[in-house]
Each structure stands twice: as C-alpha cells, then as structure tokens.
C-alpha cells in the first residue's frame, strides 16, 4: 500500500507524522518527496548507502546545422529557446525536459544534453528504507526529481511518502498513484484554508483521504467543523505539547521517547488500510 502525507500549509507536521508512522511499523519504505527541503533524514539519521546525480534532458545546439527556422522556439511552451537571425539562446532553467525540440527540429541540429537538477539518496535505519531527493539550490523544477525518487518505490512493501507543502505540481506528482492520502492540518485559519485547497486537488485525483490534526488545542474548531461537513475522517489528533516540539528540535522522532504513541500510529495505519480498501 502507498500512503502519501500532504498538508497544503507548510509546517503543520507532515514529516513528523511520516517519520513517526514509518518507525511505528515494520520494514516500510519512506520516500521524502519534499525535494526542495527534505528533512526526514534529519530525524532518522540514516546510513546512506547509495547516492546519484539526477539530470533532466536539455537541448544543446549544433550551430553549424541550424538554419534559424525557429520551429523549436515556437514549439517550446516554456520559452526556454530563443532563436534570433544569427544566434540561438537556450535557457536551461526554464526547460521542463519534455524533449519536444529534438523532435521538431527539421535539421536535427538540437541534440540531447543534460542538466543536473539534484541528487538522489538512499539509506537505511534498521529495516526502514529512506529514499529522498535534494534539489540543487536555485533549481526551480522539482517535479523531475520527485519522479526519480518515486521510481524507487518498492511495491512489495508498505510505502509512506512525505509530500512537499502546497497544492501544485510537486504535490500532485507526489500524491499520484497513492492508495490513500493523509492530510496533516493544524486547527488554525491558515491550516484550514490550505487544507480545503488540497482536499479539492485530491478529490479531483480520486485519492481517498483523511485528516490528522496536529498541534491540537491551539486555534479554533473550524477544521473539525469542515471535516464533519465534508465527511472527512479525523484519523488522529496530536496535541500541542512542548515535549513533542523539543524532541523535534533535537532531531528525535517523538515516539522514541513517548512509546505510548506507537500504538496510536499503528492504529492510524490500520484505519488507513481499511479506508483505502486494502
């Protein structure tokens, strides 16, 4: 079963939930798809056994063969190629790596080059496997790296995927193919606003979902009211507690020192399985 963990709003506790859930279970695989700021490894301290650079294809030009017809530039939806009368410019940071320009060039003057967007890392903590991506600083395109991280999904195991915040392409790419999505929210207006957006996205994607309320006790009851109206199950509440925050700030998953939560997370996983029909 593949369970993704998203939130909409950042800082609600996606990684805390993902990591604590992962170590409550046996032999799961955890993917950290928040490639702009991966942080599951900061809580897990895995032994990294494999590391590789990740590239996207970008156009490189064979100037002698180019007759400046401009077909590549007019094809490119991202304006990554400019064709002047005498000169062609390629903007790698705008390229989405679709490869269309190689195909439309009648002179075969465009060949595939590669542009490094990040690094893929794979490690272990006991029998828990962690796979994550680290996007290069200044690189705007997270999706190809997320795709590469997800290519390492081990279907023979339970897989937990930590998503980036937001509700745009990186989150959609991360949640795609999940059997269930846990939305971690906090009972604040910001939490609610972004939760609603993310619920709409996931419903369009037809992914079953439920909510974990983190920092319960702060804010108001509006997240609960919204979930009730929408028929969204509240799977777990984690209280707003100083001890949890302190452990987090020291890089320790809180269930390691608050063992009573292990059962809660196991129950959460059983509920998710049931709700996902697995």
């Amino acid at each position: 079963m593949i369970v993704s963990i998203a939130s909409g709003k950042g800082g609600t506790g996606k990684t805390s939930v993902a990591v604590n859930l992962a170590i409550s279970l046996e032999g799961v695989q955890l993917l950290d798809c928040d490639v702009e700021e991966p942080n599951a490894h900061l809580l897990l301290h895995p032994k990294i056994i494999h590391e590789k650079p990740v590239y996207t294809p970008i156009p490189t030009l064979n100037e002698e063969m180019c007759d400046h017809c401009g077909k590549c530039a007019s094809f490119c939806q991202y304006n990554a190629i400019f064709v002047g009368y005498k000169k062609v410019l390629i903007f790698p940071e705008l390229c989405h790596g679709c490869g269309g320009c190689f195909l439309v060039c009648p002179k075969k003057a465009i060949v595939e080059g590669k542009h490094r967007i990040g690094t893929l890392k794979q490690g272990f903590v006991g029998n828990l496997e962690l796979v994550y991506g680290e996007l290069e600083v200044g690189e705007p395109m997270a999706v190809p790296l997320i795709r590469e991280v997800k290519r390492h999904i081990d279907k023979g195991r339970n897989v937990i995927i930590d998503a980036p915040p937001g509700a745009s392409c990186p989150v959609i790419e991360t949640a795609k193919g999940s059997d269930f999505c846990i939305l971690v929210s906090e009972p604040t207006l910001f939490g609610l606003y972004d939760l609603k957006t993310t619920v709409q996205v996931l419903r369009d994607m037809k992914i079953p979902l439920g909510v974990v309320v983190n920092k319960a006790g702060i804010g108001d009851r509006k997240v609960y009211e919204y979930c009730k109206e929408e028929g969204i199950p509240i799977l777990l509440e984690i209280p707003f507690q100083r001890k949890i925050a302190e452990l987090y700030s020291r890089g320790i998953p809180f269930i390691q020192e608050m063992q009573e939560w292990k059962e809660e997370f196991r129950r959460l996983f059983e509920d998710v399985k049931r709700l996902a029909g697995k």
Partner: peptide
C-alpha cells in the same frame, strides 16, 4: 506566460523586424 515571458516577447518583436525597443525595464532573460 508561466515563465520566460521576456524571451517570448523578444521572439515576437524580432520576427516583426524591430531594431530598437523602448520600454520601462527589461529583465535578465
């Protein structure tokens, strides 16, 4: 445009044969 608006705009006016552009500001691309 989502991105690269400046580049696309230059493509348009270059194809029209403009030799000078007068504007307020231009970005790096």
């Amino acid at each position: 445009a989502m991105g690269g608006a400046g580049i696309q705009a230059v493509q348009t006016i270059a194809n029209k044969g403009a030799k000078v552009v007068i504007t307020g500001n231009v970005g790096p691309n």
